[in-house]
Design a protein around this nucleic acid. Structure first.
Lengths: 194, 194
DNA sequence: AGCAAACAAGACCGATCTGTATCTTTTGAA
DNA sequence: TTCAAAAGATACAGATCGGTCTTGTTTGCT
């Protein structure tokens, strides 16, 4: 009942609380008490709270980007439908119908907001997670024969991030369909090979 | 040297520090020492730190939305150019050439990230600032004869928010031109009256 | 069964937080 | 010029922060 188990418990408890309350607003004691964990257990697995935050971001990157990867990897009638599926995924996320848990905005945006200095390690971890998503979309766009797939991926990602921010601030899932419409218009005129 | 002067000094010092470091990470003592202000001066003008944060957000809403209002109110060859000017403004903001000061992401996004609960007063203040921007764009779009101006305003706003988030996380201004290209594609096929 | 590592629980430390109180100096208007 | 309000400076209180240490119990492996 030890090896990776306690470490995962720490990350799970921290992830839940960070998501719902932010990083600075959540103290170590609360993470531990709500997880039924001891303080020395935390400091056996992580040298500091910042290291725990990095561990949480790393785990979150795998689950979030893994979820989107699964969406992009499904089969669709055409390339347009494949990329638009991202926004259907967003809507299910916003409406708490996704495996990502209750929606309180994007944890990486939260991290870059609470650690705004570009050189900060946590800020950079958030950046890497976002770049990995853009790369995923770029590969899907390239496979579907879209020209300038990286530019398309960046524009789609901007729509995705904007929808996440607006959905969180407003507390509604409506931005998902707004962003989807914009993406559809974008894809309708985007040049393709063949 | 008193009336609204000290209150403005408090807000200015707090705004600078909140922008660069976030809300929870900045203590009252630092706001006061860097502003050359006394503690009782703060609590004479604001009942609490949260009230100061609300004051800062209110002031920021005026300056940011006022700046965008000026951009939208200028004269342009056509409606497309008017709405696209928002993204030229974004680029100057990201590159620290705007009157909004050094760019550390959007303060309202930061606020909604650090106070993620929808019912929170600070969260709601951030929401109002964002809704005011959408309304501004909707009015401009309507005046330019775009059909469904509110939907267009929401899609443009999503592009704007996404560009802000990506620019802050990446530390580059490139998302401004990416979002501008997407907006241009959007406007090119958007139905208009007349 | 036995043993060393991991764990829960909680006392403890110094630093820092928000907010209050005290005292002296400065300000602005009659 | 006088005087009350405002402001600067600083000490202080109580709570909470991240992090260390100790004690006794449980776990997993041989």
């Amino acid at each position: 009942m030890s090896r990776p188990s306690r470490r995962e418990d720490l990350i799970e408890s921290a992830l839940t609380l960070f998501n719902a309350n932010g990083f600075h607003a959540v103290g170590i004691d609360r993470i531990l008490s709500e997880g039924g964990l001891a303080k020395m257990t935390l400091y056996r697995h992580f040298p500091s709270k910042d290291a725990l935050i990095l561990g949480v971001l790393e785990a979150r990157e795998k689950s979030v980007n893994g979820w989107f990867a699964g969406i992009l990897a499904a089969s669709y009638p055409d390339g347009e439908a494949r990329l638009l599926a991202v926004f259907d995924g967003l809507e299910s996320w916003f409406e708490n119908r996704s495996p990502l848990g209750p929606f309180y905005g994007c944890l990486f945006v939260k991290a870059s907001a609470e650690f705004p200095q570009p050189g900060n390690t946590i800020h950079q971890a958030a950046l890497e997670a976002k770049l990995a998503f853009v790369e995923m979309v770029a590969e899907a766009a390239a496979q579907e024969g879209f020209k300038k797939p990286r530019l398309l991926a960046r524009e789609v990602s901007i729509l995705k991030e904007g929808a996440i921010v607006m959905a969180h601030i407003q507390g509604t899932s409506a931005p998902a369909s707004d962003a989807r419409k914009a993406a559809k218009s974008l894809l309708a005129t985007w040049p393709r090979k063949n």
